[in-house]
Amino acid sequence: MILNGGSAFESAGHVDVTEQVGLLFRSCHDHNVQNSTDPFRRDYGRTITEYGRSTRRRFQSVTGKDERRMITMKKLALAVTAALGISALAAGPAAALSLDAAPSGSVPTDESHSSESGAAEEEGSEDDPKSHDEDLALRYATMTLYEVAHGKGIEYTVDGLKAGDVVTTSLNDKKSVVKKDGPFDGSVVVDEEPDVPTALPFMVYVERDGERVREMSTSVDLMAEGDRGEYDDGTLLMNPEEDTNDTALGTDGVNLTMVNCSAEDEVVFRVFKKNTDGQTKVWEKRQLAGEDESASVRYIADSSKDLWGNYVITAECGGLEDSAPLQVYIDE
């Protein structure tokens, strides 16, 4: 139920204000949507419910003799009405028409975000081709000047593609056709070896049925020289390695690669944030290891939350497991 401009209070006069606030409270409570999977509706619902409870308690203490207090209480109730209306509008046209309507899609909870490899993308998520940076990950986020221009060059993985999709990059005109649904492993070789070690940004594009459905950006950190050496089985590679700031975590994210698994192993990546009670899982993603016996994903945090703090990132494949700490500080 959505009240319009406090008209319920104007029509009720001073006779039964508590009943009118009760209506508001119940409306707020309905809008709370305790089991909603939509974090936006859930968070606003909690706030509005608290407004309703507070306002109802205050109204119950009002007497007909205290007109000044009555006016104050009516203003508080109008604030509840306004908050309810704003929340309904923010939740979208469907929510504004019916607060009891179920959400139209499955949205991960705040505590755990999970993406299964090979799962088809929701239709609505393809509307914005630039909203899929988290689906692009690099096998090695740091490479030498020689590596990017020789051999396989820059190796990358794009999650959630469909058979027949065409993948290209901004570094050359090479086109790759996806053979099966799920993660796609691609590579691109730079035409000329770079002169200086710096960041090498590039784009990856996905076309489906002749229409571009994804534009994803990433960057490789170049170093003059170095020896990658050999990794143990089931080694987690993370970039940045030890720390980053909250702005970067919510935009560029963290590149994660689990190497030396068995091909077709399911690799499970998880991110935990430490707190006073121990740690809480905030993200999870699964991907099948490719022919190169590795899996690469990208964790981009929700920038609307407080991201600073200490994290632990884990990866598993087969019976192998590895972990790495990550410290996130406030970007000043």
Rank of each mutant, 00 (worst) to 15 (best):
T18F: 08
N32A: 12
G105K: 05
A88I: 03
A91F: 09
Q60Y: 00
D100F: 09
S114M: 06
L84S: 04
D38E: 11
L97Q: 15
S61T: 11
S104A: 15
D38A: 03
T63S: 08
L99E: 05
S115E: 11
T142P: 06
E121K: 07
Q34I: 13
L76T: 02
D100S: 15
S36W: 02
L138E: 07
T144K: 14
T81I: 14
F25C: 10
L99Y: 01
E126G: 02
D30S: 13
E111P: 00
V107W: 06
R58T: 00
G105N: 02
L138S: 13
T142W: 03
G52Y: 05
V33K: 14
E111C: 00
G92W: 10
E111A: 11
L84H: 06
D135K: 10
D133Q: 06
G151K: 12
R53N: 12
A90N: 13
E147N: 15
M70L: 15
D127R: 14
N32T: 13
D66S: 12
A141K: 08
K65V: 14
A102E: 05
G105H: 04
Y51H: 05
P93G: 14
A82V: 13
R41K: 04
L99T: 10
A82E: 02
A120V: 08
I154A: 06
N35K: 14
F25A: 09
G85H: 04
N35R: 06
L78Y: 09
G64W: 03
L24D: 02
Q60H: 00
D38W: 06
R57N: 08
M73P: 01
G118D: 04
Q20R: 06
S61N: 08
G22Q: 02
E121I: 02
S104N: 13
D135I: 03
A90P: 00
D128R: 08
